[in-house]
Write a protein that binds this DNA or RNA. Structure first.
Lengths: 157, 157
DNA sequence: TCATGTTTTTAGTTATACCTGAAATCACTG
DNA sequence: CAGTGATTTCAGGTATAACTAAAAACATGA
């Protein structure tokens, strides 16, 4: 109860970000960390600062950060001469998140291939439409990523 | 233990589909139902048949079907003169799923707008890049959906 | 290498989601 | 509108995930 959040607006923001990502499968604590790192000052925070700001235990912060680091939505920053690590939202976070979508498409590719081998007599479209959808995205997704990069380049002006 | 699955191949398929969707936030039972409905014969199944085939209780089938119906990955079919409802994978399931992505983008739009109001002094890109990403998809997603429809039209031949 | 502060791991508690079996409700046929 | 089968709801038990507090492991500056 020392310094929960700078002000009400950012506190609300942290809660909203947490709620959004909770639906995406993250824990509430992970969502809070993400939300805080979106708006905190400075942008780089230690585990102790995160725990303090959000009222979480050291263990929770450690565990949830590990998850966020694994999906590359947070990165660790270490500077020479300082014993403590800092954590921050990486510069190109969204590009990374989008890239990870490729592996999810890969999962569906597996289900489509397997499905074609057990293709049902009636309504084979149940499998075929999945295969079509996957083929479509295997073709489109790389292009979309390229267009995103181009879009971001143009925004820098 | 009466008629668990037609054969080993489809049983494996059901398990794999269940595993995939479990990572997507569904329960194991919901994933099983989805997998079974992808390959079962006939394509339309009653709750009792689903419960029997997958070894689930009537309550579980009812509850999980409700969820699958809500996200439109399963549809209910009722025919005159028959007291029982049937459940099946809808013809255009993937189009529906893709369409629901629009609302998720909408959620991010909200986070971006709110974030711009509490824009941090340092590393404002933490919010700005989110806003850019959302703007990109607000522009691209409808086009992508159109291209998907065109792609599916061409496949019908 | 030591000393110190940071991070991770572990054990234990609490909260939540899942599933079952049974009762209640609902919908349709005759 | 009564009877029957299908579906939903509810209470209870079980498994799992989240979180905490404390101990262990780790890393770094001196």
């Amino acid at each position: 109860m020392t310094n929960w959040e700078a002000d009400d607006a950012t506190a609300t923001y942290v809660a909203d970000v947490a709620e959004y990502w909770e639906r995406g499968g993250f824990s509430h604590a992970a969502g809070q960390i993400l939300g805080h790192l979106m708006v905190c000052e400075p942008a780089e925070q230690t585990q102790a600062e995160l725990a303090e700001a959000l009222g979480l235990s050291a263990g929770t912060v450690s565990t949830q950060l590990k998850i966020l680091l694994a999906v590359e939505m947070v990165e660790r920053v270490r500077s020479r001469g300082v014993r403590t690590s800092f954590y921050q939202v990486p510069k190109n976070m969204w590009t990374r998140v989008l890239a990870s979508e490729t592996s999810r498409i890969g999962g569906l590719r597996g289900l489509a291939d397997q499905g074609l081998k057990v293709l049902p007599q009636t309504r084979p479209d149940r499998i075929v439409s999945l295969d079509q959808m996957v083929r479509f995205f295997e073709h489109e997704w790389p292009q979309l990523e390229e267009r995103l990069e181009e879009f971001l380049r143009k925004e820098e002006s």
